[in-house]
Design a protein around this nucleic acid. Structure first.
Length: 440
RNA sequence: GGCGCUAUCGUCUAGUGGUUAGGACGUAUGGUUCUCAUCCAUAUAACCGGGGUUCGACUCCCCGUAGCGCCA
């Protein structure tokens, strides 16, 4: 109790009022070592939402000082991931590899102050003894380390490149970053950064250590464990809106119980105070639900346009015609490909043939009656199917499922009567005939 | 091993000293429907343990325990 009132963790936010006089500037600072996975992008999202909320600026900085792990197309993929979600960054882009002289200059300052010493060509920062290093973390409150647990760390490596710690501090200061959002795995290295800020006589930014997203194995999400990128999710038919919505709710929650938010609404609601301390687990089920909701909420034209982009051989007009009967059962855009396939290609009867449980003769009864229909619409079709069903004492499930398979070859189908109407009389009869023959 | 972070239903979370601990996902059951799916309703299930502080702790403090992270 005492300690809490004394240190007052949330002082961090009152401290931010000092920073508030200046414009909020945040950055996303990935290393171009590959395609950023969904956990990395969530950090970018928090940065972005906060900047938008505070009408500040969101910068992109490429931390490309580890030349051994550089992946050539990574920068492009990072930008693609951001733009897929509509996270526009401020025009200032920064590449650490182009700032070697800056780091070198700053090393000179430390040399003059005798705070570094040479060690096999590298320059190490000398850790002072018996010093308490603490900061008011915007999500974790007061965090404190004793300097004794730290080891003298390298600032500039022998190859002339800076370490992460060194470049990070200098860059954040020079670009006037006010809030540093980063994964909480960086908490243990923050004392080093603090030391650097002190050495240069700079005011440190507000640290916002965001909990890492965990996989179902309760381990930090990593590419090695198969963590996917935004690019992959979009390829699989997830909507950017749903991905944003889902990611925002991993480690953060709004004041009320509403769950569906646009990016703009999220930015309005966003607040650092409401970021959780504990690490959430990535749960695909929930993502699926968000995606389903977003598909439902999308305007039909918009949805049709996106499906058309995915399946250019399907015309938007045809998609619009089919959409009303398949929309409700789509989880991802990919599902349109599955559910709508029957309108574009012949079914493969073999796979589910054993589930066709009505006889050849019963098929033929239906066909003979369907032929007589003049006005080919679902009501008429339905009447005939019902009557054959009753006459033969068939179960609904049996009848509908058999016809569904005859039309599509699949077990999950759109509602069959409107489907038959859209398919057209001739094609429907052909398929029923084929199914009938397959029962021979 | 050292240091640190964290701890509410299976999962995402609300909750800031007094609540029947709320919502969502998932799951189960029932209803609607044109099979499957949708939709609707209902149910399901949680405060890690132990000590304090307090008239009263999920909530504040301490100690454990566990998970995770960083460094070695």
């Amino acid at each position: 109790m005492l300690k809490a009132t004394e240190t007052e963790p949330k002082i961090a936010s009152s401290k931010s009022s000092a920073a508030k006089s200046q414009k909020v500037r945040v950055r996303y600072a990935p290393s171009p070592t590959g395609i950023p996975h969904i956990g990395n992008i969530r950090t970018a999202l928090f940065n972005y939402l906060f900047a938008k909320k505070e009408q500040g600026q969101f910068l992109l900085r490429i931390e490309d000082t580890d030349r051994t792990r550089l992946v050539p197309e990574a920068v492009e993929k990072i930008k693609e991931s951001l733009s897929l979600l509509g996270l526009d960054f401020h025009e200032e882009e920064m590449y650490q590899s182009k700032r070697l002289d800056v780091y070198k200059k700053h090393l000179e300052i430390l040399k003059e102050k005798k705070l570094v010493y040479e060690d096999e060509g590298a320059w190490r920062f000398k850790i002072p003894k018996n010093k308490k290093l603490s900061w008011d973390d915007a999500v974790h409150g007061n965090v404190e380390f004793k300097s004794d647990v730290l080891e003298d760390f390298v600032t500039l490596k022998s190859d002339g490149y800076p370490t992460y710690h060194f470049a990070n501090v200098i860059d954040d200061h020079q670009t006037q970053i006010t809030h540093v959002f980063r994964g909480d795995e960086w908490i243990p290295s923050t004392p080093k950064h603090l030391l650097l800020y002190q050495a240069f006589g700079w005011e440190p930014p507000i640290f916002v250590h965001v909990p890492a997203i965990l996989g179902t194995d309760h381990k930090k999400l990593s590419k090695r464990q198969g963590a996917k990128s935004v690019i992959e999710f979009v390829e699989e038919g997830y909507l950017p809106e749903a991905i944003i919505n889902f990611l925002a709710f991993l480690g953060w929650a709004p004041k009320d119980e509403r769950e569906i938010f646009t990016q703009t609404e999220l930015a309005q609601e966003f607040s650092i105070d409401r970021i959780n301390k504990n690490s959430p687990i990535f749960n695909v089920e929930k993502l699926n639900w968000f995606n389903k909701e977003w598909i439902k909420n999308l305007q039909s034209d918009d949805l049709a346009r996106r499906i058309n982009e995915r399946y250019p051989r399907y015309s938007e007009e045809k998609i619009n015609q089919i959409l009303p009967i398949v929309k409700d059962r789509m989880v991802t855009l990919d599902d349109f490909g599955l559910l709508g396939a029957l309108f574009f290609e012949k079914p493969n009867l073999k796979e589910n043939q054993k589930d066709i449980t009505i006889t050849q003769q019963q098929f033929e009864e239906i066909i003979t009656d369907l032929i007589k229909i003049n006005a080919w619409n679902e009501e008429e079709i339905s009447k005939i199917v019902q009557s054959v069903m009753e006459k033969n004492n068939l179960q609904k499930a049996q009848m509908y499922r058999s016809i569904g398979i005859a039309l599509s070859g699949k077990l999950v189908t759109p509602p069959i009567f409107p489907a038959m109407e859209i398919l057209g009389k001739e094609e429907t009869l052909t398929r029923l005939n084929e199914a009938a023959n397959s029962k021979r």
